[in-house]
Nucleic acid binder design. Structure first.
Lengths: 167, 167
DNA sequence: ACCCTGACTTAGTGTTGTCGAAGCCAGGTA
DNA sequence: TACCTGGCTTCGACAACACTAAGTCAGGGT
């Protein structure tokens, strides 16, 4: 556990991310994001895409979901732009279809990694971990501000109205 | 968007996080984590806890969920150790109950922030953003390895069996 | 020409999540 | 003491999600 969390129990965002009110569900990015990742099964499909699954069967076997569910999720995720269809041909086989993450889908990686990190920390180790290719050091997800500070935990974070037109 | 993503479209974890097989659903941290965050409504409740909600009504009003659902999620999240009951008394009022994030719950912040960041990037801006208290600079979620490198995207990441007994 | 395999779809059914409306209880205020 | 408010719980109905089992279809191999 160490330094990061647990040093400050009972935080609930001091300063409270005040300007809550006035921007509700329609606006909220988290709600909108959860609408795209509709369900748990979608997350599992995406997880397997990261783990390298490409073919329908692989998704079915590895997610341990039923075929209809996998088919539905793949269709939706393609429609939403997280995955795209690819086709490939193994020698002596007919052309087959596969699925690959788009840039949009691949960019979910930090979120997946954050969930993974939380699970490792609080639900116990799983026996696998992410590491940086090349240097082999374990990966962590961190919050940093553009001024370069590493932000410890939810303590000193504020919610601000974004300056209009800023990305 | 800049440098981080989209520079490398169509990645699906090069190197493919190979050792997939042999560790399945029971083991997988992501699946276990999603079991705790059962449903979308649980995430919304946690989101509001971060935004400073403490009282039952606040959760109901702000999550826009029904009372029975909020009651059920709060009960479960308390049972799972993400929230804890508090009691407080406003002057001239009777003692009331509230809910606050525990260290375990608060530690989910990076995951929420990562989802938020993804949503802002790919689903369009919402008008709010997170910033570092004190310095006021916007926050980002980053993957870094312990050797200090910032890892661009899912490109150069590997999955390794964790050395036994490591945290 | 026939069979096989991969990639799905369709049909029927059970489970889980959510909702609105209403009810209940405890502690304060009037 | 009677009423009000916050914080729930109960009820009945509905929609979303998942599962099993079976069927379809296209292309290759034999």
């Amino acid at each position: 556990m160490s330094d990061t969390a647990a040093s400050d129990a009972k935080i609930h965002l001091e300063g409270r991310l005040e300007p809550r009110d006035g921007w509700r569900a329609e606006t909220c990015t988290i709600a909108r994001t959860l609408d795209v990742l509709r369900t748990k099964s979608a997350m599992l499909v995406i997880r397997e895409a990261f783990y390298g699954a490409e073919r329908f069967d692989e998704f079915v076997a590895r997610t341990e979901l039923s075929e209809p569910v996998v088919a539905a999720r793949l269709r939706e995720l393609v429609a939403d732009g997280l995955l795209e269809r690819t086709s490939y041909r193994e020698p002596g086989q007919r052309a087959r279809q596969g699925y690959a993450l788009t840039a949009m889908g691949a960019d979910l990686f930090p979120a997946l990694a954050a969930l993974m990190q939380w699970g490792e920390r609080w639900l116990g180790p799983s026996g696998v971990r992410l590491e940086h290719h090349g240097c082999g050091a374990p990966l962590t997800v961190e919050l940093r501000c553009e001024a370069g500070h590493t932000v410890a935990s939810s303590g000193d974070i504020g919610l601000a109205r974004a300056p209009r037109g800023s990305r």
